[in-house]
């Protein structure tokens, strides 16, 4: 259904790559679907990137191991699946990063990927990051009385992990951890009040909206990063025209990823707005949360990591990329 991209044909040898993925094809995997399609088209089918969904080649959390041992040539990973495997990349999961637009999403990731620590930890696993899947900002959806003021959060138990969970805890909420698929029944049963997910796409795919009363639309407590990674060894072995093809394709397939999220939102947002109460916060409130609650969490993260790498420098770099100062 996607229009084809005007890329020049590339001559080259026959080649097959295997890529390890979990779940099934979905909006968040548009980037790899597009990569596989476009590579095939540009090389007239000479280069096949075979997508193995459903953890057929590896458990999602062991994809870095798979790359490391040469079990496959590419994979998608999520930084928060294994914080200690990619401590530097966790910078993208810090709470309340001031990301406001798609451009911000791109800039912040480019900056992180260029940082020496992120490069080093990928190199350790024999991997290199090819492109992000640009996971959207999280928002929170839940049942019961909506948290219109910051103090309202105190009454809520929220499924949220990592830095987002820590900020919510500082605000006074109770973070809980469950598998994503348990959230629906949790909210329905009232054993948890709300859940943070990438907005809107994950909320709707886990059907949280069916058991919820409200959602936040500009709380934007943070995001995470699920990049497409390639085996460095396999990449180095590519003929140069194939390497160039990958570079040329990246902005195009990233654009397809953007369109995929946009389409999902266009479908979901009106439905959510009609069914649920939309909670919006003023800039003032968000800034207050950033200063009072998020900054300490970021400082804690810097403290924890500074013995291993220049964590403060990494945070500053990310803020600079967004045109802000940390």
């Amino acid at each position: 259904a996607q229009s084809s991209i005007p890329i020049d044909k590339v001559e080259g040898p026959k080649l097959r790559w295997d890529m390890s993925l979990w779940g099934t094809t979905r909006p968040g995997t548009r980037i790899v679907d597009a990569l596989s399609e476009q590579v095939k088209e540009a090389t007239d089918g000479n280069w096949e990137i075979k997508l193995h969904y459903g953890e057929a080649l590896s458990k999602a959390r062991e994809n870095l191991d798979g790359i490391s041992i040469g079990a496959f040539d590419g994979a998608m990973i999520c930084n928060f699946y294994h914080p200690k495997k990619n401590p530097g990349l966790m910078v993208l999961s810090l709470p309340f990063l001031p990301i406001d637009s798609w451009d911000d999403h791109v800039k912040v990731r480019k900056a992180a990927y260029e940082h020496e620590q992120v490069k080093r930890e990928m190199r350790r696993w024999g991997a290199r990051i090819y492109s992000s899947s640009y996971l959207p900002m999280y928002e929170i959806m839940g049942s019961g009385d909506p948290p219109r003021a910051v103090s309202d959060w105190r009454a809520l138990s929220v499924r949220a992990g990592g830095g987002i969970g820590e900020v919510l805890a500082k605000i006074g909420a109770t973070p809980t951890s469950t598998t994503a698929t348990e959230v629906y029944t949790g909210v329905q049963q009232g054993t948890m009040d709300a859940a943070a997910f990438p907005f809107t796409y994950a909320h709707v795919s886990y059907r949280i909206h069916e058991v919820s009363d409200w959602f936040t639309s500009n709380f934007s407590p943070g995001t995470a990063d699920c990049p497409v990674i390639l085996s460095a060894r396999a990449y180095d072995k590519l003929p140069s025209q194939y390497q160039e093809l990958l570079e040329t394709l990246e902005p195009h397939i990233a654009e397809q990823q953007r369109i995929a999220y946009e389409n999902v939102d266009a479908e979901n947002l009106p439905m959510l707005r009609e069914k649920l109460t939309e909670i919006e916060y003023t800039d003032q409130v968000i800034n207050q949360i950033r200063e009072e609650f998020a900054r300490p969490v970021i400082e804690e993260w810097i403290e924890e990591n500074k013995k291993d790498f220049d964590a403060r420098g990494l945070v500053q770099l990310v803020f600079e990329a967004l045109g802000k100062e940390y």
Binding site: S58, E62, D65, G66, I69, G70, A71
Partner: peptide, 8 residues
């Protein structure tokens, strides 16, 4: 590679 895979 086969040896490495089976052990995981």
């Amino acid at each position: 590679t086969a040896i490495a895979i089976v052990g995981t």
